[in-house]
Simulated assay, not measured.
Amino acid sequence: MQDFVFHNSTKLIFGKDKEQLVGQESVSYSKKLLLHYGGGSIKNSGLYDKVVSSLREQNIEIFELGGVKPNPRVSLVREGVAICKENDIDFILAVGGGSVIDSAKAIAAGAHYDGDVWDFFEGKSTIEACLPIGVVLTIPAAGSESSSGTVITNEDGWYKRSTGHITMRPQFAILNPELTYTLPSYQTACGITDMMAHILERYFTNEKNVEVTDRLCEATLKTIINNAHIVIEEPTNYAARAEIMWSGTIAHNDSLGVGRIGDWASHDIEHELSGIYDIAHGAGLAIIFPAWMKYVYKHDINRFVQFANRVWDIEIDLNNLEKTALAGIKKTEQFFSSIGMPITLKEVNIDSDHFEEMAKKGTENRPLGNFVKLNEEDVLNIYHLAK
């Protein structure tokens, strides 16, 4: 186990009707804020009215910026930065899922910077401070409600890139599982896949003697697996929704990664996919992660055997460890498919036209991954495995 410092400052407020507390939580940070959200869903559900009412009870001045899309765009981020600077806004409230929160984080960083916010994503500048952020979570998936990172897409070249800083962690996040009842089953499944991928990125490590976090990763994965079909088949099952929502937060608040170095190649490979084709991030991960597994499993077959046994309850064949490892990968694919996720590029009508472009863009600054370092040819091979 490696040395580590773990610090997560986000206040998590979990439970029924907790969105009604957003005003009193926000007022301690500002009397003027930017309310950031996506499309019309929060208005159709009545959540928008609840949030605005709670804020107005505290006499908070509200500026609004809606329109966040999945795979959030830097053009809207720039618009948000301008609003914050022009109106001396010193707090951002994100109401939505990971895309809204990531967009809010990028705005928060850009508002403290004289240059273009995309500089942070290209590595031309380093984030030093962000405006404080609050969250009302509506989609359990990305874990952005308490993470220190953000992912944004630049329409100029369709680059999807990440950046982060400790000040990007939201000051508070309100998590009410009831707010997820109306999510379409496909969106629910995408979120489940995303949170599982966050755990798997940390699980597949070269670090030895990390049993505590191994077991925590395995337990969280099994909890997600056990409740996935319930939330899809029974959308208003509060108990199952609560398990999924809390798992999504745990998956990406960094507690499962302490003392170990995660991989993150699958996320980077998928970013090129959704950057160009604009598919749902979770769907892209369901396609790419099993392909990555098939490509690298021989690097540490014992870890893949452990994964198969502890997560999928596959009996270990001591005479054929490879058989056990491959069975675990197969079970992963089957699970993604069972909740309605695609597991091949063909299923989402993506051919090989941009494989070389994506492999080149993804590796132009560095090899991908830590479990196994992947160059351009490796990434290209993984895209072909995912066909």
Rank of each mutant, 00 (worst) to 15 (best):
M1A: 14
D3W: 04
K16V: 14
L21V: 02
G23S: 05
Q24C: 01
S28V: 10
F63W: 05
G80I: 01
D102Q: 00
A104Y: 00
K105Q: 12
A106G: 10
G115C: 03
V117R: 06
D119A: 05
D119T: 04
S125K: 14
I127G: 11
L131R: 08
I133Q: 04
V135F: 11
V136Y: 06
G149E: 14
T153Q: 02
G157L: 06
L175T: 05
P184W: 00
T188D: 02
T188M: 10
T193A: 15
M196N: 12
M196K: 06
E201S: 10
Y203D: 03
T205I: 05
E207Q: 14
V210F: 08
V212A: 10
C217Y: 01
I225N: 13
I232E: 05
N237T: 08
M245W: 04
W246F: 14
S255G: 10
S266K: 02
I276N: 12
D278R: 15
A280Y: 03
P290R: 00
P290H: 02
M293L: 07
K294D: 15
V296Q: 04
D300Y: 03
D300L: 03
R303L: 08
F304M: 02
R310I: 04
L326E: 09
E333T: 15
F335Q: 03
L345I: 12
K346W: 06
D351S: 14
E356P: 01
G362F: 00
T363L: 01
F371C: 13
E377V: 08
N381M: 00
